[in-house]
Design a protein around this nucleic acid. Structure first.
Lengths: 358, 358
DNA sequence: GCGATTAACTCTAGCGCTAACTGTAAGCGC
DNA sequence: GCGCTTACAGTTAGCGCTAGAGTTAATCGC
């Protein structure tokens, strides 16, 4: 049997309400009484039933977070940043993974809404905006992170994926790449914008990105490594092999580097590789991986700030959009290859300029 | 305003109870009525208030999980395995991180208990058993994972850390190491047992582990890499440098390998390195890392099985203990070095046998 | 000494839902 | 027609707690 307020009240011969007030530091209770109650609470090991409390107050002090994959360091870091920040204000984070499955995500969202959380944060894996658009939120504030959906009335916190693509392109060009390719991400805001930023930055320097230099893969996070391996093989099969590749994320990049090396190619001499995400082990892999840092934990803390604003100040009904600027972390996988190209196994190829790129 | 049962009932001119029954597929409701109710539910976008439901039923269909660190792939995988398995039975996982802080963990536990979850799973970072021993659980079942606490009346699921230490030792000896060292983990069951297993297995082959071959580090998970770097430097400073090292976990091992190489040493020729955890990127790092696999996701699924047993079958009051056998994953960082030793930079050293080891 | 204020407690109602019981009418066998 | 069951609805009570109004006695100003 769990102890409840009635037990405390009965034992002390006071009313339940007095106990309730004492526990919430209500001024209606005398110091003597408060102390007696607290003593009894300790003695009996009483713990307020937050379910009951939240039923009557309408607030749960819980914030929900749904991400596509908790194993992915990006989301894990976002979760950590968010959790730390909200906890300092008495909120508690409830996390869940959608396993990159839109239907599962929908169930999770419904479930969380049914639990009447105070706010919900989603890195949504929906392939279109239908579910989110039709969602009946009641009065639960919803914050989208990482993946943006146009024309939806939700707050958003994420990084500037267009800039990420641009940074990658500029960097590859700066180190001497002339035939950069892109292993693109999914058809969501992140994948689309990274591609767009990449393409635009190349175009600016009069380099066109041919269709077959844009590779699609099925899996990007879970199973991303294998996708990288496959993608590299497809790169090899091209008439003109690229001399640099911007991978949608670091997991794919790891696969690309691994396969490139096992095929006897050198990174970055034969192929420069840059990823995105700046995972914590990027520096430790066979060829330390250049990457675009998305400031993941900051996404968490900024989201927390936004939520706390909404929950305290009811005035923050206005739609907020927080876009963090990514930055480049250059490592060995894109060390300047210009001087090396002549000695490359692909030296023959490097002299040819891709028709479309002229 | 959120819709509630009263709204549905009023709109249809039926009683609240009928609505409640219809939604829970109670046989008391006719098919016609059930359909009318479901239609109205859809129309109004009604979602049952699970807070209220759980207040009256006493069950929340929520299972809590507290881990020291969500970024650590081991716990992330446990979480994933657990989440997937319980979800199939209508339970929902609520996760939280203690950030390896015993006090924070205590708060989280109290908080979760206050929310009346149906069960709680903890990979506890408590440094002693006081908190857990004194904990008033009410009737919430508690399952400890990964880190074991002796003489506490809780269920346990984890891997056999003693066997992990033993496997590591046997492997290092098998590949020809004669002076194996150990970078040990914290003073919890995991750290202690891995050390014990390691020591015992060495002893069995008449190899003694001198005190200065057992290194302590402060941080093992977050900041574990740096610990590995530091530990390697301390190894270098020893009178007799070890020729192999078993690291408490892979993060530390990564630090060791990185520093070893940047100091001009070869892995495994000069120093064989084996970690523990078998992280997903072990194969991708500069020297693919041998590791002891702890079957992390299985820990998750076995925990789920245990919980579901407890929650359905009230008879499972008997204390359960599930110990999974780890297994060795050998990679380049421990490739047989016997033949290489002669050519090693440390060749001179390899011929000397450590005094204590004779 | 009287109304007004204040401190400290209690009472009442209800958050949204469900378990357990109580009708009620129809259907059945005999 | 009688008792019995069955199908389907409603009534009652209460999960554990809190907001807000009510009560009581002490204190205060004048």
């Amino acid at each position: 049997m769990t102890v409840n307020m009635k037990d405390i009240a009965r034992d002390l011969g006071v009313s339940i309400v007095t106990v309730s007030k004492a526990l919430r530091d209500h001024p209606d209770v005398s110091d003597t009484m408060r102390e007696r109650i607290h003593l009894k609470v300790k003695e009996l090991g009483y713990r307020p039933n937050l379910t009951a409390r939240s039923l009557v107050t309408g607030r749960s002090s819980l914030i929900g977070l749904i991400v596509p994959d908790l194993i992915h360091p990006f989301f894990a870091e976002v979760a950590k940043g968010l959790s730390l920040a909200v906890r300092q204000h008495g909120y508690f984070l409830v996390m869940s993974s959608s396993e990159e499955d839109p239907l599962l995500e929908q169930q999770e969202v419904e479930h969380m809404l049914a639990h009447r959380l105070d706010a919900m944060v989603i890195a949504s894996c929906q392939t279109n905006d239908e579910f989110l658009r039709k969602l009946r939120l009641g009065d639960t504030p919803l914050i989208l992170i990482d993946r943006f959906f146009k024309d939806l009335p939700f707050h958003f916190v994420g990084s500037d994926d267009y800039a990420a693509g641009r940074l990658a392109a500029e960097h590859l060009l700066a180190i001497g790449c002339r035939r950069p390719a892109h292993i693109r991400g999914p058809e969501n805001s992140v994948g689309i914008r990274r591609l767009k930023g990449f393409t635009d930055a190349l175009k600016k320097q009069n380099i066109d990105l041919p269709e077959d230099y844009i590779l699609r893969v099925l899996k990007v996070d879970v199973g991303g490594r294998t996708s990288g391996v496959d993608a590299f093989r497809r790169l090899m099969d091209l008439a003109y092999m690229p001399d640099g590749v911007f991978c949608y994320n670091d997991v794919i990049a790891v696969g690309v580097i691994g396969e490139a090396r096992s095929q006897g190619m050198r990174v970055p001499e034969d192929l420069a590789v840059i990823g995105c995400g700046n995972l914590h082990y990027d520096n430790e892999i066979s060829v330390p991986l250049s990457s675009i840092d998305q400031r993941s934990s900051e996404i968490g803390s900024r989201t927390a700030k936004l939520i706390l604003g909404i929950l305290t100040d009811k005035g923050t009904a206005v739609q907020q959009r927080v876009i963090l600027k990514p930055h480049l972390i250059a490592r060995a996988s894109t060390e300047s290859t210009k001087s090396n190209f002549a000695h490359s196994k692909l030296a023959g190829h490097t002299k040819r300029i891709h028709a479309k790129n002229v």
